[in-house]
Design a protein around this nucleic acid. Structure first.
Length: 260
DNA sequence: ATGCCGACAGGATGTCGA
């Protein structure tokens, strides 16, 4: 089973790019972030024509996440528990039944949090705490699960081109990195880091300052697996070449193959 | 240099992203 995540920076602006990547990569599940449209504006029929079921947690203009799956999506739940007045569409969960059982998927779009010291940074840390709480709940069920998406956290210095350029950024604050580590310490595995020892492997390159041309990127899109899912992990990769295409998202797809 | 690019809403240019 091939599962993937991609922050597309507007599903409408990226529809042809997504269609092309799906036809080449043929993921069984694709978690999307920053779809930037309401549920009713989501181009559902494009994906249904490609053989996917759609679960959508949309929002006009900002945020918005979705899960596409060749198999039926069950037990769909939109929103992260723990804060009733959070109106950002940043989290969507669904379960997929496969040959050997059920795997739960979460499409994750953590807040950016800049500037540091602002209420946006507080919101980011609180949001990551709520994500950790949900991750712990799922861990208790002892089922296969994958948290996939844009966590907006650079895990270590080796996950960016120049750490000095990021020291004042919310994505690289010790508190942000600790929040991601806390999820891992609960028992989750960073699929990419487990499968790849190479440093400086990025998932995001800014549109500005020739970041792509200079390979000045950061690794902020992650797949975190429960132990049961990690036991099935075969490969994990970043489809870097997608960033070099016409009208690209600033993020590229990350995927892993699970022997499920 | 809180910019450089790009999407969005709206119909100019400010907000947001990371």
């Amino acid at each position: 089973m091939k599962i993937a995540t991609w922050n597309v920076n507007s599903v409408k602006a990226r529809i042809e790019a997504i269609r092309l990547w799906i036809s080449e990569a043929a993921p069984d599940v694709l978690c999307l972030q920053e779809i930037k449209c309401a549920n009713e504006a989501f181009p559902r029929s494009v994906f249904e024509d490609l053989g996917y079921n759609c679960a959508i947690h949309g929002q006009k203009t900002y945020n918005g996440v979705a899960i596409l799956s060749k198999r039926p999506l069950e037990d769909v739940a939109a929103g992260l528990p723990g804060c009733d007045d959070d109106d950002h569409a940043r989290y969507l969960e669904a379960a997929v039944t496969c040959g050997t059982g059920v795997i739960r998927m979460a499409s994750v779009y953590a807040p950016n949090g800049n500037p540091v010291g602002s209420n946006k940074f507080d919101y980011k840390l609180r949001w990551l705490e709520r994500l950790t709480a949900r991750a712990k709940q799922i861990l208790k069920q002892e089922e296969a699960a994958a948290f996939m998406g844009d966590f907006n956290v650079i895990p270590s210095s080796e996950d960016c081109h120049d750490p000095a350029a990021w020291v004042n950024d919310a994505l690289f604050q010790p508190e942000s990195r600790a929040a991601l580590r806390r999820i891992e310490h609960e028992g989750y595995t960073d699929a990419f880091r487990t499968c790849n020892t190479q440093t400086h492997q990025f998932t995001f390159w800014d549109y500005q300052a020739g970041s792509w041309q200079k390979d000045h990127g950061i690794r902020i899109d992650h797949i975190l697996l429960t132990p049961r899912a990690t036991d099935c992990l075969k490969t994990c990769a970043i489809d870097k070449h997608i960033r070099g295409r016409e009208k690209p998202s600033d993020h590229v797809p990350v995927w892993c193959e699970l022997e499920l």
